Simulated scan of single mutants.
Amino acid sequence: MPSETEASALLTFFTQAGALKDTLRSARTATGRVESVAEHSWRLAVMALVLAPTEPGLDLTRVLQLCLIHDLGEALGGDVPAPAQTTDPDRKARERQDVRSVVAALPPAQRDALIAAYDEADAGTTPEARFVKALDKLETCLQHVEGAQVPDFDFAFNLSYGRAATDAVPTIAALRRPVDDRTRARSASARASEPSTA
């Protein structure tokens, strides 16, 4: 049973992590509501729960840990939309510092374990991290084509986004193909509904 001090530290962490419920992403749900980072991470974990057993040798517990921790820093720094991520060279360092701040109240062993999980997910060098990175890209692309996006949404962005990561994992590469087909259909539909400039 945690001491009063430990309970306070845990509740501080849970409150900080809970900010992801109100941290919004740029994608929208099927009803047009802007999704939260927590919703993205939840579905990522559900997808991992179903798909990780199809990839031999993956540690499902570790995969789920990486899914749940990979965007924790966004509780403080907010989400950076996928198209803008390549234009911000300091984003990763800031996000890692935000993760350190979110977990700071935890006892050292728990704090260090969460930071290590974040670092593993970010580096993408273990089989579990590569799987999560690929699945993260697929979930984002899927949300883009499922959602009631803004009228000028660039669906074609999906076709190249995270391609190397998704292609590296056979199960996810197989799922990427129908998502790409949906992307092309949404992109064509969006172009067809644009007002004529003639």
Rank of each mutant, 00 (worst) to 15 (best):
P2Y: 07
E4G: 06
E6F: 02
L10K: 01
L20D: 09
L24S: 09
A27I: 12
T29W: 09
A30T: 00
A30M: 01
V34M: 10
E35F: 09
E35I: 14
E39L: 11
H40N: 10
H40R: 08
W42E: 15
R43N: 13
R43T: 11
L49G: 05
A52K: 02
T54D: 06
P56N: 02
L58W: 03
R62Y: 02
V63G: 01
L66M: 11
C67Q: 05
C67R: 01
L68F: 06
L68E: 11
H70R: 10
A75L: 08
G78V: 07
D79L: 07
P83E: 01
A84G: 02
T86V: 13
T87R: 04
R91G: 12
K92G: 13
Q97C: 09
R100Y: 05
A104W: 11
L106D: 07
P108A: 15
Q110S: 15
A113Q: 08
L114E: 07
E120A: 14
D122A: 13
D122Y: 14
A123D: 12
T125V: 14
T126S: 15
V132A: 07
L135K: 00
L138A: 00
G147P: 02
Q149I: 02
D152T: 14
F155H: 04
A156Y: 09
R163Y: 09
A164P: 01
A165E: 15
A168G: 02
A168N: 04
V169Y: 08
I172M: 10
L175R: 08
V179E: 01
D181I: 13
D181E: 14
R182V: 10
R184Y: 05
A185W: 09
A185K: 13
S187D: 14
A188Y: 10
S189L: 13
P195W: 12
